[in-house]
Simulated assay, not measured.
Amino acid sequence: MAPPDGPGRQDGGLTTGEVARRLGVAPTTVRSWDRRYGLGPRLRTGGTHRRWTAADLARLERMCELTTTGLPPSEAARLAREQASPDAGRAPEQSGAKGPGARTGVRPGGLRQEGRGLARAALRLDPGALDELLDTVIADHGLVTAWTEVIMPTLQAVGRKWGRTGEKYVEVEHFLSWHVVGALRRSAPTAPSVRPGATALLACVPGENHELPLEVLAAALAERGVPIRMFGAALPVEALVEAVHRTGPVAVGLWAQSRASASRPLARHVAAMEWGVRGARTRPVVLTLGPGWAGQTVPGLPHPSGLAEAVTAVRSVVGVTE
């Protein structure tokens, strides 16, 4: 891929696929804007192959910004063609673009290029483009890096926009989160066979409904061949205890997003559970996962600081190595 701020590979321009990833749209959308609105590249190689320059990309970025405000695509394309600079006429109300439901954008300036594309696709509520971009970033970087460096910062950028301005981006957050879960499950390989005494049980503690980070951990472990049983959000105490008794996991990961949901007594209770024949009893290694445990970790129980550390810790306990 070309450098994020450069005109393209070896100064020859970007391909349509590269442009689409930067903008957060499907390649078919880029081609459609070329065909319908005359926003195509000025450089073509071999007669039909499109190569997009920095100026071409700036026009398309302006097109995305204007359509995000609710402006019809044809009008947005006209303004994008007329404005020589992507910063010219930035405020949509100056061109009469202000309208019902208008948005000013997430402005994900601190994100990697892939994150900017994800943010734009999420803001437009474009499912096809979002799925394609998520699948690409996971395939290109692997699950742990894709989550840590691209997906999570994008989710945080949307959340900061909502908190800073009061604009209700709840639907964008929910939309993006739902598609992230879908991408995680598409990327995860078929679960390996569960071997007795060599599986990990993952669950959110009772009252904890923020399960997305635990979904990421489950997918990352599956990607590395770790047998897991995933129980998701807000597993009641009785159900958690029964699941541990029935499956005999070697590791139990308890996720807590907030301090209000983290429970030291519960973690201690699960860590003290035993099974097996008398004289050869086994206990699980309980890992306290998530920011809810910060400042109230349980002595003797591992508390990985992030996703990569959690993957390493679970794999070590389960006994799965490279």
Rank of each mutant, 00 (worst) to 15 (best):
R103P: 06
V298H: 01
Q83M: 13
H49M: 14
A119S: 05
M1Q: 15
P192T: 12
G225E: 05
V194Y: 12
L125I: 12
S32A: 09
R78G: 13
G115S: 01
L240G: 00
V244N: 05
S95W: 15
V205T: 06
V250H: 07
G24N: 10
G295K: 06
T15S: 11
A219L: 10
P100Q: 00
A122I: 06
S258A: 10
A271Q: 04
G89Y: 02
T297N: 00
L155R: 07
A188K: 15
D131F: 00
P304V: 05
D34P: 09
A97T: 09
L235M: 04
R50D: 00
Y169E: 13
G225N: 02
G13V: 08
R185L: 08
S187P: 12
E242L: 10
A262P: 11
T28A: 04
L155F: 08
G13F: 07
G96N: 07
G70S: 07
R21P: 00
E309P: 11
R268H: 14
Y37A: 03
D135I: 03
E208R: 06
D140P: 15
S305V: 15
R160Q: 08
L14I: 13
S74E: 11
E215A: 13
W275D: 09
G279Q: 01
R103M: 07
E93R: 02
S316W: 12
V244Y: 11
R44Q: 14
D135H: 04
T282R: 15
R283A: 13
R21F: 01
V286Q: 10
S85G: 07
S177R: 04
A198E: 08
P4C: 01
A97S: 11
S258C: 03
A262N: 00
V286H: 02
A20I: 15
P41G: 13
T145Y: 04
A220R: 00
V298Q: 07
A191R: 14
